[in-house]
Amino acid sequence: MLIDQNMKMADVVLHDPTLVPIINRFGVHLGMGDLNISEICKKHNLHLQFFTTILNAFHDKLYFPKEQLQSFPARLFVDYLQKAHRYFLEEKIPEIAGLIKETIQESSVNQKSYAIIERFFVHYRDEFRTHIQREEVKVFPYVLKLEKALEEDKITPEIEQLFHEYPITEYQAEHENVEEKIFDLKNIIVRHLPTPNNDRLWYQILREIFTLEKELNEHSRIEDLILIPKVKAMENELKLKMAK
């Protein structure tokens, strides 16, 4: 189903509740009443096309209008990706960590083995945090400065230096796959877990991990298919201008 601006926000969420964390990132919350999407955007001062495009991209894996997505300014993506980072770090991952802790406490068997899994998840969290910090400290500020320089047609020495020191290809090379550990975690729980006495809790963990994975895939899709190509195009424009 294509989500359009005239649909009621509530109908959209009732159709696909996995969109709740996405609309939260835009400051839209449950208890949304009867407003349609365009009214919601007016109320929260959101970019209507950007909001609907992101909802559609998350809702339907086959919907990914690259040209349209690339036409939005980079700052909209940076803002969105930063909010997503907050959500992963401050909500989703602590939620799963808490569930794992609770599950181990309620286990009457194999506690030692489960503690190893908990440790693995803590490692994963730390690695994820480092990855995100690099994006926020290095990549995003560079993207924003690059966009501003091009918009105002002011090529400062700073931006030239940043471009030479840290072109986006560099970032792409180190954009390592934090998803591999999630893949492992799923397999460890499903295949290799010593039989637990509380399947229900493990199932809950597993479900949350699958949700996290889906959200991360969508996140990387935007970074890999939109942000990086967009920055590459901006860098080419900058190169042309510097050559003049």
């Binding site: 591999e180 550990k181 893949f183 492992d184 460890i188 295949r191």
Partner: peptide
């Protein structure tokens, strides 16, 4: 065989 890709896994 194990479905595990990383060394920490």
């Amino acid at each position: 065989k194990l479905g595990i890709k990383t060394v920490s896994g």
